[in-house]
Every structure is written in C-alpha cells, then in structure tokens.
Design a binder for these strands. Structure first.
Ligand code: MN
Ligand code: MN
Ligand code: MN
Ligand code: MN
Lengths: 223, 223
DNA sequence: AAATAAATTTAGGCATGACTAAATTATACA
DNA sequence: TGTATAATTTAGTCATGCCTAAATTTATTT
C-alpha cells in the first residue's frame, strides 16, 4: 500500500500536469509546501514504483498506473467533501481540510456507500468534478469570472476550495455552484464587478473573482 | 498533537487496565501485536508527555491526562462504528476495522455532528458503551454467556468486536445487543448451549459463548 | 561562448516507530 | 537461599519522510 505522503504527491502531480504538461520539482514542492529536495526524494520513490515518468531536471509526469491512483484519491476527496456537506452539514469552508485527511483512510466499501447515498454525484460542493469509479472525469469548460463583460449572464460552475476564508466570503454572497447571476457593471481600470444575484446586488473584487469560475455565459441580446 | 501510534497505545492501556490495574509491557505488546521492546519505547515516550505512570519492570497506568485521551479515541471509535452502521449500512463485522483508522483522523466537529445525528447514543453496534463528550462512561454489569444455566432468560448486552468472522457467525443467529433469549439446555461436560431466540432454536458453542455478554438474567421461576 | 542566475540533486541529519539480539531484573521453586 | 525461567529493558538497526546546506546541472543573458 502507498503511504499518505505518496498519495498526496500523486494527487498534486495530477492537478499540476492538468495545466501545463510536465511538472517541475520546484512547482510540485511549492504546491505541497515541502522543500524541492523532499520532492526529488519522493519522485524517485514513485519512479521505482512505476507510478511516474521522470528524468532529472526534466520534470515528472504520471504513468497510467500513477494517474489511476491520483484519480482514486481525488474521487475519495470530493465524495467525502460532498458527503460531509450533505449528510453531516459540515460548512463548505470546512469540508476540504477534513477530506484531506479522510481521503487516505476510507475503504472502497465506504466510498461506494457514500456514492450510493449521494446518488452518484458528479461534482463536489465547490463544483469540482468527481471522477467516477473507473476514473472518468467529466470536464466542463468554465472560465474565470474576470473574463465577464457588462450585461453578461452566467452560472457559477466552480470555486477554488483551498482557502477557507475566501469560501466563507464567497458563500456570504450565495455564489454557490449552480447559482445564476448577471453582470451589472465592470468598473474600469481593473475595478470590481457589480453583479445581480436573484435581484440582490453584490460587489465582487477582482481577487475574489479570479477564484470563481462560470459557464453558460450569455450576452443580454441572446436572451 | 499525538501520533496515531501513541493514541492506539493509550487506548490499549486503558482497555487493559480496566480488567486488572497495572498493565505489563508484555500484555500491552501482545495486545497491540508489537514486540515488548517496541512497547517499552513508546511507554517511555508517553511518560515524558505525562500521559502514563511507569516504573521499569513495574507496569504502566494512565494519568488523568492519558485517560482523557484514551476515552476521546474510544469515543471516536464507537461513534464511528455506530455511524457507519446506521448511516451508511456498513455491516457490523466491518465497522471495527474501518473505525480503527478513522478514529485518529476525524475532527471534534465531525464527532459532534455524528453524535447529534445518532441522537447522543450510549452504545456502539456491539453493545460497548460510548463515553460522552466529557469522558463519562456508563458501566453495565454484564456476564459472559458461559455462566448461564438451564432455563435462564436474558438479553444480549455486548459482543467482542475484533473478530470479523466471529461477528458474522453471531449475527447469523441474530444475537445482536438487545436481543432476548432463553437457555433451553446446557450440554454437560463443557458442551454447547441450546437457546431459544424468539421461538427459533440455535446451538451456540462454548468458544462463541465466551464472547457474548448478557444481562437481566432471570430464572424461569422468577418470571 | 562565458558568466550569471535559477532549478535541481546530492549528502548528511533528525524524528518516528518498528525490529532483533543481548543484557538485566523479577519471580518461582527447589 | 540460591538458581532456573520468564519478563523486561537496553543497544543497535532499519525504513519513512521530512529538513538544510552544498554541489551540480540547466537556462538565461550579455
Ligand atoms: Mn491528503
Ligand atoms: Mn472541493
Ligand atoms: Mn487505531
Ligand atoms: Mn465496537
């Protein structure tokens, strides 16, 4: 069996190689909050297990076996987040931390039972896709809210889940995945977004908007 | 924070000192399936943390602080067992193994939410008492089924929870905690017990009976 | 093409938590 | 009261997974 640490490395490599192919030791180390030397050490171990491809100074990528493990852990994480949220009422800014520990520990049986209880869901409380039990991920084509223009309407697809305070802030506007809103005004010179959520106006700063991803963008004349 | 290993040692010392005061290194090591030398090492570490009292060759006992930690972990374990059983339908012979890993990992928040969901229960699926959040344990005075005589009636109070196959076997007779039965016959020469469970007769071997604890024992003439 | 800067690797260490083998202490009994 | 036996401790190892500091390699700039 893999250690918790090895699983977290594989998960991180998966996420980083999604946006940008080969993953450098430094990027991986920064993402995991360890030193590059520690990352090199683990990468070598993962290579002997044939879970990653690696050439020194050339970055690392997952093998098919490594990707399968990564997706398995990501599936655990996101199912757990949704389960904690729906079944136990853990607030959406608390589920990530909890799932980060539980993901390494639950059995396949418990995974399957949560999946069934939740009705085979496809997204976690932050809108991130839950890989199915065969490791198939449904990709959506969402864009950062910062790309929106005056008058456009859209639906929240996903929000970054790692910063708890940011999630509480976003939650205070009711901007959960699935929530529809319309851009009332984008202030000039990189200014904030004024939006209309079910008749309620809210002002969203650019730093926050970077972490909100939307889809189904419609211009007002297309309605 | 304590390591998983330290928590398991404290939990084990608690359980062993319940029946017999001071706990010897050998007994503790056997219980945890490690070598005595390993137990000595951990005991020394726990002593520096003031969680146990210990003098070499003289056995070990928990301090108040150590007992509090032990009860906290036991509470996690038993709440988790019951939660997995009731909320996710994990069979009663599977909950122990799962809880053994989860007990070290769940937050106080999740503990409290499970407790609420379950209606502040006082016993796990095997009948073992769940310490309350202040560490108070409700003690019951149950006796091993092997002490029963012909004609006596009783209710199952608790069954040993660590042997999965044994639990499946006991479950096949529906001998869950709370189940009432009457002893039809105790075969002589250390023979098996024939019992009546809601009109259904079952024969229970002595080895199995050792692991079933009963209470509210009544002789037939007292009814 | 060198020189500098950045990234990465190597070497050496530390803390955990297990192990085996050998030495020590306690206990049991003759 | 000594001696055999059993229990326990000590000493020395090993594997993980992290760290820092120094050496090495690659990338960038002039
Ligand atoms: Mn994790
Ligand atoms: Mn998430
Ligand atoms: Mn445990
Ligand atoms: Mn139990």
């Amino acid at each position: 069996m893999l250690t918790h640490a090895a699983e977290d490395y594989l998960k991180s490599i998966y996420k980083l190689q999604e946006k940008g192919g080969k993953v450098s030791t430094g990027i991986l180390a920064e993402f995991l909050d360890v030193k590059p030397a520690s990352a090199t050490g683990m990468i070598k171990k993962l290579k002997t297990m044939k879970l990653v491809r690696y050439e020194r100074y050339r970055g690392v990528t997952l093998t098919a076996a490594g990707k399968a493990v990564a997706l398995e852990i990501i599936r655990h994480h996101r199912l757990l987040e949704l389960y904690l949220f729906k079944a136990l009422g853990v607030p959406w800014d608390g589920v990530h931390e909890e799932a980060e520990k539980l993901e390494h520990v639950i059995s396949e049986d418990v995974e399957a039972r949560m999946d069934e209880y939740l009705g085979y869901p496809t997204a976690d409380p932050h809108g991130a896709p839950i890989p199915d039990k065969n490791g198939v991920v449904i990709q959506t084509d969402s864009v950062p809210m910062t790309e929106l223009k005056d008058g456009q309407s859209c639906v929240v697809a996903e929000v970054s889940d790692s910063d708890s305070a940011l999630l509480r802030h976003i939650g205070s506007f009711n901007l959960y995945p699935g929530t529809a809103f319309r851009v009332v005004e984008v202030a000039p010179f990189e200014g904030p977004f004024t939006i209309d959520i079910a008749g309620q106006e809210a002002v969203i700063g650019r730093e926050v908007a970077k972490h909100i991803f939307v889809e189904q963008v419609q211009d007002p004349d297309n309605v």
